[in-house]
């Protein structure tokens, strides 16, 4: 695969390192001279120095790239360059880093649907560690429309002693498995919930809140 990366900071550097190790072809575009030298010293001549422009992208062979990744520290730059990659160079996949999680929605609205936000990832991980009475989102799928969630049943859960069938969950939610101690149970219609069960479910993100009412008092 040929990957063009804009931004040779920590994210760009380690991304390139990983991709190269997996045998992919990589070009990094970076404006800072020192960062360019560092990349060149470590990985050879895979770096183009300069403010990323259409000319520089052309020089990087953007039109034959399979993936374009914008990971500078500036959301505006990442957005605009991803737009150019998609609209002008018609690169099949453009991934943008979002520094301010608030901008993710804007990126999506403007047609950049593949975004990565370190802030959001860290926040989610911390929330997973902290929350007890919440539905924990584990994985986001289908561009955020679906998620796999984890639910810990408290001892006063309204689902207790009921069967899966009796619970009649929302139509756009489905149970994947129940973890009971060391046991992993594939839920059937007649499976009964017990306190301290951990339930894994696949749900439409919009219905996650509704799902909560079935398991928490």
């Amino acid at each position: 695969m040929y990957v063009v990366i804009v931004g040779g900071g920590k994210v760009g550097y380690y991304l390139a390192k990983d991709l190269l190790a997996r045998g992919h072809e990589v070009t990094i575009i970076e404006r800072d001279e020192r960062k360019c030298h560092r990349i060149q010293d470590d990985f050879g001549s895979i770096v183009l120095e300069g403010e990323c422009s259409t000319d520089l992208m052309e020089q990087a062979g953007a039109s034959r790239a399979d993936v374009f990744i914008a990971v500078t520290g500036e959301d505006e730059t990442n957005l605009v360059l991803s737009q150019i990659a998609k609209r002008f160079f018609q690169i099949p996949k453009a991934i943008a880093r979002v520094v301010n999680p608030k901008n993710r929605k804007t990126f999506n609205q403007l047609g950049i649907d593949l975004t990565v936000s370190a802030t959001e990832i860290i926040t989610t991980l911390i929330e997973q560690e902290m929350a007890t009475q919440e539905i924990l989102p584990l994985v986001s799928l289908g561009r955020g429309k679906l998620e796999i969630v984890e639910i810990h049943l408290p001892i006063d859960s309204p689902a207790l002693k009921k069967t899966v069938q009796q619970l009649s969950l929302p139509e756009d939610s489905i149970l994947i498995s129940i973890i009971r101690g060391d046991q992993i149970i594939v839920p059937r219609g007649d499976t009964v919930f017990r306190p301290n069960d951990t339930v894994l479910a696949l749900t439409a993100t919009a219905s996650a809140e509704k799902l909560k009412t079935f398991f928490y008092p």
């Binding site: 500036e74 959301d75 505006e76 730059t77 957005l79 605009v80 737009q83 804007t106 609205q109 403007l110």
Partner: peptide
């Protein structure tokens, strides 16, 4: 420049 482009894209497309 990039702030201007992004803001204008938002104004125009959103």
């Amino acid at each position: 420049d990039y702030t201007n482009i992004m803001a204008c894209l938002m104004a125009k497309e959103i």
